[in-house]
């Protein structure tokens, strides 16, 4: 579905990722792990077309940008923006509108379904800016669900959440992957969730990369090393 070939990214001439190649297939659950500054978010931005690679190519097969749902890092949103929960979630249906000017019944139904799944339908009239971090994250995930037809991209979905809420978030993402057949590409600090839920791991190290099945990652040197640092080895089995 997504083919990355020898892509490199740079900020102001400093290369942050070089010669990375991998393929994501339909239905995969790919978790991107690695230290801070290893280029995880940069790669996500590249795949979403928000940043151009200096080298290599990223190609979509059997999908285009309008099939993507995206959950950005929550920190970017301003809290005084006037928007109801409903307005924010509905805006995820924009890429299904084609040439229509306004949302129709189906758009509103899809938004309702997404809000019910995220358990935010009761607060749909509330102001987005007045919500807690966890609630906001649910709203943005509902919006991402509305726009995701084939691929859901999540950048640190649990960064602002407490442990219980983040575990629920990961379970929800897994359900979306299983029940709706939506491909998942997720950046995460949390290697436990990566090991528990993902089908594939993309590890971005400073000097080397790993891409492959989770099972192979656990057995690899780079994987053993990383999981050991984070004290996750006992979660493996």
């Amino acid at each position: 579905m997504i083919a990355c070939e020898n892509v490199s990214f740079a900020y102001d001439g400093v290369v942050v990722l070089s010669d990375l190649s991998f393929n994501i297939n339909k239905g995969d659950y790919v978790c991107v792990v690695g230290e801070n500054g290893s280029g995880k978010s940069t790669l996500i931005k590249g795949i979403l077309g928000l940043k151009s690679p200096i080298k290599g190519s990223i190609a979509f097969e059997g999908m285009d940008k309008r099939d993507i749902g995206y959950l950005p890092q929550s920190a970017q949103m301003s809290s005084d923006f006037p928007s109801s929960v409903n307005e924010a979630v509905l805006s995820g249906r924009l890429n299904s509108m084609g040439k229509r000017a306004f949302f129709d019944k189906k758009d509103k139904q899809e938004a309702k379904k997404a809000m019910e799944l995220m358990d935010i339908y009761d607060i749909r009239g509330k102001s987005f800016g007045e919500l807690s971090g966890g609630q906001r994250q649910r709203v943005l995930l509902a919006r991402a669900l509305c726009s995701a037809k084939k691929l859901l991209v999540l950048d640190e979905p649990a960064a602002a959440l407490d442990p219980k809420a983040s575990y629920e978030m990961y379970q929800l993402v897994k359900r979306i992957n299983d029940e709706m057949g939506i491909t998942i590409l997720m950046v995460s600090h949390d290697c436990r969730s990566a090991i528990e839920f993902a089908s594939h791991i993309l590890h971005l190290g400073r000097t080397r990369y790993f891409y492959g099945l989770k099972e192979d990652y656990i057995e690899s040197d780079i994987g053993k090393n990383y999981l050991c640092i984070w004290g996750c080895e006992h979660h493996v089995h």
Binding site: K65, R66, Q76, E87, S91, L94, F102
Partner: peptide
């Protein structure tokens, strides 16, 4: 502004998301 109401909302609310999802 009336015809593009929903699109302008989305661009204003979250430009990155709107770009990433194909607008």
């Amino acid at each position: 502004y009336v015809v593009l109401y929903n699109r302008i909302f989305s661009v204003t609310f979250d430009e990155e998301f709107t770009t990433a999802t194909g607008a």
